[in-house]
C-alpha cells in the first residue's frame, strides 16, 4: 500500500508540471503587451521598459517559463497590479471558502448520487427507478446558475428561510452556524448536476456488477440479498464509481465560478470573474493554477481510494 501511494505521488509530478505549462501557455496567448496593460497606455517608455524587464518579458518563452516556475515553486505567484497585493495572499484568503463550498457539494452529490443510484438499480423499472430517472434528467439539463437563482427566489426571497448570499467574513462573529446557513443554497445548486450524473453512473455500474459471476456465487452461498447487494455488488461497483467522483470534483471546482457569482460567495471563482473583467491576468493565472492543483490532488485521493478498495489495483 505504501509503495502504491508513493508511486501515485511520484506520478503527480509530471501532471503538475503539465498543468503549469498549460497555464503558462494560455496566459502567454494574452494579446497585447502586459506591461502596457499594467501601466496603462500613457506610461512612459522608461517605466514600460522597467516593468518588462521585471516581468522577464524580454526573454525567450522557455526562459520566461523557467523564471515563472521557479517563482511558483518558491510561493511567488506574482503581484496583482489591480489589488496591489501578492497573488498568493489573495488566493489564500479565498481558497478556504472555495474548498468549503466545493467539498460540501462533492460530499452531498456523492452521498445522494450513490444512494439514489443503488435504489434505482435494485428497483429497476419499478416506480422508484422511474421517478429517479426523471429527476436525473431534470438534474443534468438544468444550468446550475439558473438553479441557484431559483433557489434564491424561493428560499431567500419568497420564504426568507435562508440568506441569498453575501457571506462576507469566513472567520467573523457568526461562527460555524452562520457559515452553514450561507452554505446550504449554494451547495444545493452546485451539487445538483454532479449528483444526477452520479446517479446514472452508479445505477449502470450496479446493474453491470449484478450480472457478474461472483454475485451468482454469493447468491449460491445462500447470502441474503442485502448482503449480496452491499458487500458483493456495491463494493465492486464503487471501484468504478470512485473515479467518477474525481471527475465530478472537476465539475464542482469549475462550476463554483458560477455559483460563487450567483451567491456572492467570497471564493476563488468570484475572484476569477472579477479579475477577468479588470484584466488582472496575473491573478487569473494564479487562481487557475491553484484550483487546478487542488483538482490534481483530489484525483490523487480518488486514485488512492480506488487502491484501498481494490487489491488488484494497489498490487499492480
Amino acid at each position: 500500500m505504501t509503495r502504491f501511494i508513493l508511486t501515485r505521488l511520484a506520478l503527480l509530478v509530471p501532471v503538475l508540471l503539465g498543468v503549469t505549462i498549460i497555464v503558462f501557455v494560455v496566459m502567454w496567448l494574452v494579446p497585447g503587451d502586459p506591461a502596457t496593460s499594467i501601466l496603462g497606455t500613457f506610461a512612459t517608455p522608461e517605466n514600460l521598459a522597467k516593468v518588462r524587464s521585471e516581468l522577464g518579458l524580454n526573454e525567450a518563452m522557455p526562459v520566461r517559463y523557467a523564471i515563472w516556475l521557479t517563482g511558483v515553486l518558491h510561493g511567488d505567484l506574482g503581484q496583482s497590479y489591480i489589488l496591489h497585493r501578492p497573488v498568493l495572499d489573495e488566493l489564500l484568503d479565498r481558497l478556504v471558502p472555495t474548498l468549503l463550498l466545493a467539498g460540501a457539494s462533492l460530499a452531498l452529490c456523492s452521498v445522494v448520487g450513490i444512494l439514489l443510484g443503488i435504489v434505482a438499480a435494485i428497483r429497476q423499472n419499478a416506480w422508484p427507478d422511474r421517478v429517479i430517472t426523471l429527476v436525473v434528467l431534470l438534474g443534468v439539463s438544468t444550468p446550475s446558475f439558473w438553479l441557484g437563482m431559483l433557489l434564491i427566489l424561493w428560499f431567500a426571497v419568497r420564504f426568507a428561510w435562508l440568506p441569498a448570499g453575501g457571506m462576507q467574513d469566513m472567520f467573523g462573529p457568526g461562527g460555524p452556524g452562520e457559515i452553514a446557513r450561507h452554505l446550504i443554497l449554494p451547495t444545493l445548486a452546485l451539487a445538483a448536476v454532479p449528483a444526477a450524473v452520479l446517479v446514472r453512473l452508479t445505477r449502470t455500474a450496479m446493474l453491470e456488477v449484478m450480472r457478474q459471476d461472483y454475485v451468482r456465487t454469493a447468491r449460491a452461498k445462500g447470502l441474503r440479498e442485502g448482503r449480496v447487494i452491499l458487500r458483493h455488488a456495491f463494493l465492486n461497483a464503487l471501484v468504478n464509481v470512485v473515479p467518477i467522483i474525481g471527475i465530478e470534483a472537476g465539475y464542482v471546482l469549475g462550476g463554483a465560478v458560477y455559483i460563487e457569482s450567483v451567491f456572492q460567495w467570497p471564493g476563488i471563482g468570484r475572484m476569477l470573474v472579477n479579475a477577468i473583467s479588470t484584466r488582472d491576468i496575473i491573478l487569473v493565472q494564479g487562481g487557475v493554477l491553484i484550483v487546478a492543483a487542488a483538482y490534481v490532488v483530489i484525483n490523487l485521493l480518488t486514485d488512492i481510494a480506488q487502491g484501498v478498495l481494490d487489491p488488484r489495483i494497489r498490487n499492480a
Binding site: L29, G250, V252, L253, G254, Q285, V288, A292, V296, N299
Partner: peptide, 22 residues
Amino acid sequence: VDMLMAFPYLLLALAIVAALGP
C-alpha cells in the same frame, strides 16, 4: 490530452476566455 484533462474543464475554458478576452 492528459494535460488538458488534468484541469477542471470549466476552469480551463474560463482561463482561455480570460486570455483572449470576452
